[in-house]
Design a protein around this nucleic acid. Sequence first.
DNA 1: GGGATCTTTCAGAAATTCCTGAAAGATCGA
DNA 2: TCGATCTTTCAGGAATTTCTGAAAGATCCC
Lengths: 173, 173
Amino acid sequence: MSEEDDKLKHARDEFVAQWGALGTQWGINRTMAQIHALLMTAPQPMTTDDVMENLEISRGNAHTNLKELVAWGLLRVVVKKGERREFFEAEKDVWQIFTIVARERKRREIEPAMAILSKCAEESREIDTPEGKAFYDQMRQLEDFVGFASKMSDRISSMKYGPAVQLAAKFFS
Amino acid sequence: MSEEDDKLKHARDEFVAQWGALGTQWGINRTMAQIHALLMTAPQPMTTDDVMENLEISRGNAHTNLKELVAWGLLRVVVKKGERREFFEAEKDVWQIFTIVARERKRREIEPAMAILSKCAEESREIDTPEGKAFYDQMRQLEDFVGFASKMSDRISSMKYGPAVQLAAKFFS
DNA sequence: GGGATCTTTCAGAAATTCCTGAAAGATCGA
DNA sequence: TCGATCTTTCAGGAATTTCTGAAAGATCCC
């Protein structure tokens, strides 16, 4: 079966490499994306050393990014009895992955935007010139829209997969 | 009215600065986000030199990012009669801005992901080992989900604002 | 043609982000 | 307590991204 194993190894290596490259576009660093790809396609939980070896990266790098992925909730730490080392295992359910990423993006992208918009709207609320009114108006429109998007994101992220698909089906009808 | 004008200038400067900082999180560079913020809140179209002066940046930087924003569709070039210079004006409609950004993100983030997933699924389709099947299965699940998200994004982006809000209202009921 | 004005490009500098390797910190069993 | 094993941190270096400033390229009018 070495033939088959080679094909798999090749496909998996490609997935890891490309997913890593893509990570950059998504605003997460290459290593983090590669580790995530590696573990999503790992049959067994892996140790820091496994990851280091497979991706040919330093211990510091592996460690930092593994912990970051754990903080996101995309990886879990697994302890095996009789083993002192930590093993890492990925969340593999796509809907779970989606909701985790959506929540994180909301936290990092939507919420700071809301804060800015609210502040600027507030500061300009009572400026009684045409320019002032136009500015306030623009801030309010942005604020309303972003607030709305934020609510939608929450709502969807908190749904179970089944209902979400149901809803989407309705959407396409 | 110098008092009022000052307050407005302050609020606007803050918006530009903060929006620029936020841009980094969104994966676009600071200058590009700042220019966008500046023009979204400009009562009149602005020239390259206006932008350079206001943000205190070089001509090359201003030029490159203005053109990039035009390429995205977030700015339009305006020609005034009797003027040789180009003026730039921002799309101010929030729904338009949203659909433009959604389309761009799809192009840069979703489509490359789809390509990788399809290729890796294809390559692993016939591997007849437990690991091979698991890998193929994972690729397919990701592919299906991302494909689905892609369709949803298209569907929403191509809607008019009114119907989109209607739909959202149903969603919250 | 030639000068004036505006746009575009791009090599190198500056700034930012990311990674390495090593040292320090924990935890455990003997 | 001590050595072995594993985890964590971080200063400095490497890689990547962004910006500047100047030169070259358009376009227009005289």
